[in-house]
Design a protein around this nucleic acid. Structure first.
Length: 138
RNA sequence: UCAGUCGGCCGGACGGCCGCUCCCGCAAAACGCCGAAAGGCGGCGGGGGAGGAAAGUCCGGGCUCCAUCGACAUACGGUGCCGGAUAACAUCCGGCGGGGGCAACCCCAGGGAAAGUGCCACAGAGAACGAACCGCCUGGCGAGGCUCCGAUAGGAGCGAAGCGGGGUAAGGGUGAAAAGGUGCGGCAAGAGCGCACCGCGUUUCCGGCAACGGAACCGGCAGGGUAAACCCCACCGGGAGCAAGACCGAAUAGGGACGGCAACGCGGAUCGGUUCGCGCAAGCGAUAACACCGCGGGAGCGAUGUCAGGCUCGCCGUCCGGGUAGGUUGCUCGAGGCGAUGUGCGAACAUUGUCCCAGAGGAAUGGCCGUCACGCAUCGUUGCGCGCCAGCGCGGCGGUGCCCUACAGAACCCGGCUUACAGGCCGGCUGAUAUG
């Protein structure tokens, strides 16, 4: 598992599928090459000052690493880029719930994938897709 | 013991499992993966890995580039008691002056207001060519009134109110501020009008490197405040910043060179080169497409055709140079930390010993857990004191829960300043109280 570092990669992932959770927002994108899974982290300034932002990023990073170590890593699909956008809840909530949320978020992302396969539907019905997303979340 | 004041320091500890990053060693590579390239990543072991403010980015420097700024002037900006420390400073130290506090101690944007300009609201008579509102004093007029003379008419004098003239800055009143203050003398009443003390100022002398302090004599006081109003004086300052700068370097567009393809006719010239023949080779002969020069013509483009007009000078490949994304570097040994000795009241400085102590880059320095300490809350138990009881206060022990720490994250590096900060430790000094 590599880290995502280029700004262009982050922008590309931001246009892909996304799933919301209490502590984070998960975004993903399928790449054309055969490279490894890459994960990036984004914590914006509105989430707090620098130590708090660092802590959010570190906890999310540790959760992704935990998934890889325990074998749940298979939930992530190869040749994909993932971006975890941190939220303020990630600062205080229990670490176990972050792990559970991350697993379920990956599964929901998997179920969304077939819909995203047809480019026509993605282009023509973006609003319907996002409605489905919110229904899934609740 | 309490209250205060000043200075210094810490800012959870230990352990387990799993990670991140940099350096060193094995080690020289080879190989694999990502990338078009530049380049990056990958094994094992050892070691280092956030702060007192890393923060705000407010000053001062180093370093880099650009201009060539050496000197002077102007503009703009900054600093502003004196001396010292320092690479430098708006910082620090020691003094001076002013203000506050019983004291330790604290605070001060502290040059110049007789160089000039401006402003000083309201109130008030008057607020800077120095003022007369009330009051006080003085003399003049003075209906009525009083006294005197006179038989009356009338005359003389005094004179309240009032009127206008002069003197006066002691008092009242206004104001942030009213023309030095207090006392005595003096005067019609007053006034630095005179005197004493205090204040202010000039000059001289003494002490001090200086800011300044002290004394004497003289001046009668001769004109406030505001320079975080303009201004004057002295001193300082070139600009931009590690996204600086250096090296490497895609795609796309555009620039240049070369080659290939496409590209008409005539004439000239016969150098170069091509092809063919001969020859071992050097070379010789022939050929006329290319190329050279001159003249004339051209090709492509729009939905299509014609006409007129317009626009462009082709296509492909290779290489070169600039340069963007990107990569590498700058990048951590430095006005460095700690200790000792010496000098100095001190800030500091000198000598010497010792140590190497973060280098990330969508940004590492962590995640999860256990034990303990500290603090707070609560419960139980126990001791002491007070109380009739209920109960209250202090202390010890144990259990549970909470915070599991506050403020806050290096971003080229230093010296400062400012701001934020749970809790805690140490020391100096001052005042009050108690005991001896």
């Amino acid at each position: 598992m590599d880290r995502l570092r280029q700004r262009a990669d982050f922008l590309a992932v931001a246009n892909g599928a996304r799933v919301n959770s209490t502590a984070f927002t998960l975004q993903s994108r399928r790449r054309e090459d055969l490279g490894p899974i890459r994960v990036g982290f984004t914590v914006t300034r509105k989430n707090g000052n620098a130590p708090e932002r660092n802590r959010i990023r570190r906890r999310l990073r540790e959760a992704a690493r935990e998934l890889e170590a325990t074998g749940d890593f298979m939930a992530m699909r190869p040749h994909h880029d993932y971006v975890l956008v941190g939220r303020r809840a990630a600062l205080t909530c229990d670490f176990g719930t972050i792990l559970d949320d991350l697993r379920s978020a990956l599964q929901r992302l998997d179920r969304q994938d077939p819909k995203r396969q047809s480019p026509k539907r993605e282009a023509r019905e973006p609003r319907a897709g996002s409605n489905d997303e919110t229904q899934n979340e609740t």
